[in-house]
């Protein structure tokens, strides 16, 4: 409990510092928001074009895919708000500049991965949330408390998976220094999570829901909210990914022991 509070306070401090960083670089807001809007639009337009030619993609109709995209956007925004540092991990590991991470108390995973809070990405978060809200309003069935709980649960699943995947991919960098493996893995997994995993063949789909749980970024949360899977299935998936996450974190910490810093 004390540890949790400590990390929450740290998160608050990272956020504060993130805001300070930005106040010195205001142009960034504009470029960031413009580019990300373009990114959202490309996703939306791609699906709209496809739905101009068909009614269903792997069993998902147009309103459902819009919800799917909502989760994709939000989970991406979460990544950009909190986990942007993971992008630099490979380089920093290669340059041997992680010495201080070794020396300081606290969870190195938390202190490293959450250190770069991005304020402008919060605007993306707002846009993404807006889209998700709009997409949900296009679905049959009225608003309910149970629905809200389901929504929060789905979001938590998506964000947790994001963190787990970010950490998982950087482990590859420990094995193969400067291989860019984590960034390539990130790009590939992003590409895989761009579409409902139901488009893939069965075996591959199973991989994406189990060991590389890309499906839990957007497909599973959307399926949960849309009732495409039952709450029980949702519980099972969530439990598995929670355990997987703990395993990944432990693995990362073990790998970090092998870190050799650069020359001094």
């Amino acid at each position: 409990m004390g540890a949790l509070l400590h990390h929450l306070r740290l998160a608050r401090e990272f956020a504060r510092v993130g805001v300070i960083r930005k106040s010195q670089f205001r142009v960034e807001f504009l470029t960031q928001v413009v580019m990300d809007t373009a990114w959202y639009l490309v996703h939306i337009v791609t699906f709209e074009i496809l739905y101009g030619h068909t009614d269903s993609i792997a069993g998902w109709d147009r309103p459902q895919v819009r919800v799917f995209l909502g989760f994709l956007f939000l989970s991406d925004a979460f990544w950009m708000i909190w986990l942007g540092q993971s992008w630099h991990f490979g380089r920093e590991l290669k340059d041997g500049v992680l010495d201080s991470l070794r020396l300081r108390p606290g969870s190195p995973i938390f202190v490293y991965f959450f250190q770069r809070f991005s304020l402008e990405a919060c605007i993306n978060g707002l846009m993404a949330a807006g889209w998700l809200g709009w997409a949900l309003s296009g679905i049959e069935g009225s608003f309910s408390v149970g629905g809200l709980v389901l929504l929060l649960w789905a979001l938590a699943l998506s964000f947790w998976t994001r963190t787990v995947l970010s950490v998982l991919f950087t482990i590859a960098e420990f094995r193969a220094i400067n291989s860019d493996l984590s960034n390539v893995a990130w790009e590939v997994s992003m590409t895989l999570s761009d579409r409902p995993v139901d488009v893939f063949p069965l075996r591959f789909r199973q991989l994406l829901t189990s060991f590389i749980p890309v499906a839990a970024l957007s497909t599973l949360p959307a399926a949960l909210v849309l009732g495409r899977i039952t709450p029980l299935e949702g519980v099972l998936h969530s439990a598995w990914i929670f355990v997987l996450g703990l395993g990944v974190f432990a693995w990362w910490k073990r790998s970090f022991r092998g870190y050799t810093s650069a020359l001094g």
């Binding site: 400590h6 401090e13 990272f14 510092v17 300070i20 108390p105 606290g106 202190v111």
Partner: peptide, 10 residues
């Protein structure tokens, strides 16, 4: 601000 971060860390 770095110091404040350290304050939280320690």
């Amino acid at each position: 601000d770095s110091f404040r971060l350290l304050r939280e860390i320690y």
